[in-house]
Design a protein around this nucleic acid. Structure first.
Lengths: 172, 172
DNA sequence: ACCAAATACTTCATCTATGAAATATTTCTG
DNA sequence: CAGAAATATTTCATAGATGAAGTATTTGGT
């Protein structure tokens, strides 16, 4: 039987039942906003994960890595992938190993640097990615379809501002 | 040496260098918004992780679980924790085991249901949580301090709407 | 030209998280 | 009241992610 505890939790529990949403009344707006961001992220990621698994037997991290490679047909180094996906190098090593294993990507020597190599999509990988990309985009669009165009733009704008602020800070 | 590939990535790479932010021009606003949400989440989570580790030798999942228990002094069942934190039961089992091991929480029998029990903060756990909570709130507030009060309220509102929409959907 | 520092990548132990299956107990239904 | 279904939890294999340390190669300063 499927362990539905997580994915169905939010369908079984109304707003008023969920303490993560029922904050102490004096609580700061920032805290509430952070929790909402967290919840939206979890819900969206969970949904995309289920859809990618059901439709293509793959996962979001794999999809995201392939998406980067698709945008860079010349290939990317491990270091680039690590930066772009904002995860550690060790993580990329593992992901890459699995995708190579599955024949979706390949490593190519960098003639100018024997420490490094380029990672590229194989024909099989490119084919799979192209089949996934359209669906992925539709899924994302449909998750936002409760919002007016203007609201979406506003949300995007506000998140962009926050992102810039967070990325620009050097401290801690 | 610290592997700084992930955490420092965003400091070394400007907006224009980061393909995750430089979307194909025809790309839908929804996709851009999703990516921004993803990036904000990652940056904020990473920052909180570093701060919790540096200040208290603990992690965000542990903190979040303790936060739920703090709000529910009567205790919570595993099932409740799983729903509230939106993760699977197996995950809660592991987290709980570790926190019990550390003496921060405890399991109490439910006299009315021999399958279940209640999880509560110990005195040590309550004490630690109280010391962490204030800092945690400050950290969150400071991450949003680039935004006007009105902007923050707007962001919160939009995320709230999105959250409701995502939680209410039964489909996939 | 040398050697120290920086860089690219891997490895390892650990933690977080999933999905599926197993166990034990309770609840519901006929 | 018996048996089936539902519920609460654990276990297990596997994936994903971190932080820290290790290896190999390149860069840069003197």
């Amino acid at each position: 039987m499927i362990d539905s505890s997580a994915s169905s939790a939010i369908f079984q529990t109304g707003d008023t039942d969920n303490p993560i949403q029922r904050l102490p009344s004096g609580s700061h707006a920032a805290l509430r906003t952070w929790l909402r961001l967290l919840i939206c992220h979890r819900l969206m990621e969970g949904r995309l994960r289920n859809q990618l698994r059901a439709g293509f037997e793959t996962t979001l991290p794999r999809f995201d890595l392939m998406a980067q490679l698709d945008r860079h047909p010349e290939g990317l180094k491990m270091r680039d992938l690590s930066r772009l996906l904002m995860v550690t190098g060790g993580n990329i090593t593992g992901l890459t190993d699995r995708l190579v294993e599955e024949g979706l990507i390949e490593r190519r020597d960098d003639p100018t640097d024997r420490r490094a190599y380029y990672v590229c999509l194989t024909a099989k990988g490119k084919d799979l990615f192209e089949r996934m990309a359209g669906h992925h985009e539709e899924w994302v669009i449909s998750m936002f379809d409760c919002m007016e165009e203007a609201e979406l733009a506003q949300l995007s704008e506000l998140l962009g501002k926050l992102k810039r602020r967070l990325a620009d800070r050097i401290d801690s």
